[in-house]
Computed example of a mutant assay.
Amino acid sequence: MEQTSLNLVAIAVFVMTLSALLSPALNISPFIPAGTTLGILTLATLDSVSWGGRGLTIFLDLFATPQQRQRVIHHEAGHFLAAYCLGIPITSYTLSAWEAFKQGQPGLGGVQFDLTLLSDTKTIQKTPLIIERTLTVLMAGIAAEMMIYDNVEGGEEDKKNLRAIMRIMGISNSLYQQKESWALLQAKNLIIRNQTAYDALIEMMEKRASVEACQSLIQEKINQIEVMT
């Protein structure tokens, strides 16, 4: 079951327990909280089976705090900046579950890349530079969170994708952590070098500017830095 489904199940159990404790004092029939909880669990199961948990993801995302939404933007801006600077094509981006749903993306979406070159094992083996850049892009969201918040709440899917690529490349499990650390360091350095562009990109993404507008802004900031130096 999807993590969002598990979250909702936990909420349902909590509500039922609380209702059971309060129902005698409030003169509420015990069948009401029990029926409500059963309904929630049924919906959670149907959503998990039929929609892959997307409905619950959208529902729970409605209750995200402004701080959580800011963290998402900072995370995705890290991916976006790294992808642009390293030449990984960006096709779109989303910053909420509803935006992701409208674009047909799973979960909360995020920055979408054109990774056509990675679909062929022979191409992967012949283009190690592209692989290194892709690994850096995947770790850039985590790097951004660490730099801004000193901790990381997202990025599990990024790590899964990174390890999937390394498996295709034939990298042994013992080297996973080393490669992750290397890519994380590269991503941090990239964001630091382009801090002005990163900060400006966050503002653009908050306004849901187009991919093209965001890319133009990054290039503009990079050009300004080059002129100054």
Rank of each mutant, 00 (worst) to 15 (best):
F14T: 14
D120Y: 02
A213Q: 12
Y198G: 01
T42C: 10
K221P: 09
T45I: 14
A144R: 05
I225T: 13
R54G: 11
G154H: 13
G39K: 07
Q186E: 08
V72H: 00
M139A: 08
E76T: 03
I191C: 06
V227W: 06
Q67M: 10
I73K: 10
S23N: 14
A20M: 11
D150E: 11
K221I: 07
E145L: 06
L138D: 01
I40E: 06
I148P: 08
L41A: 05
R208A: 01
E153G: 15
N151C: 11
S48I: 07
A12V: 05
L8T: 09
N161L: 15
N173P: 12
A100S: 07
L184M: 04
Q68T: 14
L117G: 11
Y176K: 03
P89I: 00
S172V: 08
L21Q: 14
S19G: 13
L46M: 10
D120Q: 02
S48Q: 09
L22A: 13
D47I: 00
K160Y: 05
E212T: 11
N151P: 12
T65G: 09
D150K: 14
A10V: 11
L138N: 03
Y198V: 00
L38V: 13
V9R: 07
K179V: 01
L118V: 05
L184K: 04
F80R: 04
I165Y: 06
T134V: 10
S172A: 09
Q224V: 09
L184E: 04
R167C: 05
G155F: 02
L38T: 14
Y176D: 07
I192N: 12
